[in-house]
């Protein structure tokens, strides 16, 4: 039954087979996607036509690899900009929230805490449309009453960043809170006794202690922003982010350049995941 108990060969073998099948199920789509990035064919499918790097480096006339594909490169850059902005905003908000809920006491604390975790159980689509509608209403109001057209309230970069931050901040807050809970407050007291002021204690003691979780939360925020589709689709303006650009290509039929992008992204996220997990940041899903 378990390690310490005797079990029949059949039971153990059957269970192992199930796990092997499960892992094949888990990895098959990823492995196939990665391999087909190197197939010398115009379509992401078999038969195998030979090995090529054209879908990475090809520069026409037939095949444009990812490094020469202007549309995809532009959306990659857009996603990168968005992800950096979201990382900064949500790391700041999340860390503030962690301090607020772990170290301060105030009226309606529980109600506010409930509001903070609510974005985790609100579907991303709803966050997207509600923020779109709200900012549109504000934009119309300003235009009607002040006669100014405020462009950042329409779909576009600022709205995407705000929309994604609305729920990614919560995740950073939970990651940072988990570490702040274990903080030994005698360290702070010792620093006060030695004459440090509040800002110094915060900077040299508490934040220093929190650094691994803040870095972990920020990395997580970057990745979640980079991959987000559901919220972004409603807020994006003329500049598509990478997932949205890829979605349109996948839906309408694509060349293996999508596989090449996927190859790079899978490689990137895997390295990122393994580094994070082996460093023991188990809180990071």
């Amino acid at each position: 039954m378990i390690r310490s108990l005797p079990s029949s060969k059949k039971y153990r073998g059957g269970f192992t087979l199930f796990i092997i099948l499960y892992f094949i199920f888990l990895f098959a789509p990823l492995v196939v996607t990665m391999i087909l990035a190197f197939n010398d064919s115009m379509y992401p499918s078999l038969p195998w036509q030979g090995f090529t790097l054209d879908w990475f480096f090809g520069n026409g006339p037939e095949k444009y690899g990812i490094f020469h594909d202007q549309t995809n490169l532009r959306s990659l850059f857009t996603s990168f900009k968005v992800a950096v902005a979201v990382m900064i905003v949500s790391t700041f908000l999340g860390t503030c929230a962690a301090f607020l809920f772990e170290q301060e006491n105030f009226r309606f604390k529980n109600a506010l805490y409930f509001l903070m975790i609510a974005p985790l159980v609100i579907p991303g689509v709803i966050l997207g449309i509600s923020i779109l509608m709200f900012s549109n209403t504000i934009g119309l109001f300003i235009e009607d009453h002040l006669g100014i057209y405020v462009s950042f309230l329409g779909p576009g970069f600022p709205l995407v960043v705000l929309g994604q931050s609305s729920f990614i901040s919560t995740i950073v807050a939970l990651v940072v809170s988990a570490r702040l809970k274990k903080f030994d407050h005698t360290l702070e007291e010792a620093a006060y006794n030695l004459g440090a002021n509040k800002a110094e204690v915060l900077w040299f003691i508490t934040l220093k202690y929190l650094r691994p979780s803040i870095i972990g939360g920020a990395a997580m925020a970057f990745l979640m922003s980079f991959e987000n589709f559901n919220t972004t689709i409603f807020l994006v303006g003329s500049q598509a982010t990478l997932p949205i650009n890829m979605y349109m290509q996948v839906r309408d039929g694509s060349t293996p350049v999508i596989n090449a992008i996927s190859f790079l992204l899978i490689l990137g996220t895997s390295i990122f995941a393994v580094v994070n997990l082996t460093k023991g940041n188990k809180k990071l899903l």
Binding site: V32, T33, F226, F229, P243, I258, S262, I266
Partner: peptide, 10 residues
């Protein structure tokens, strides 16, 4: 950790 889009594409 890989985005949903890539997994669906696979």
């Amino acid at each position: 950790w890989v985005s949903e889009l890539i997994r669906v594409y696979g």
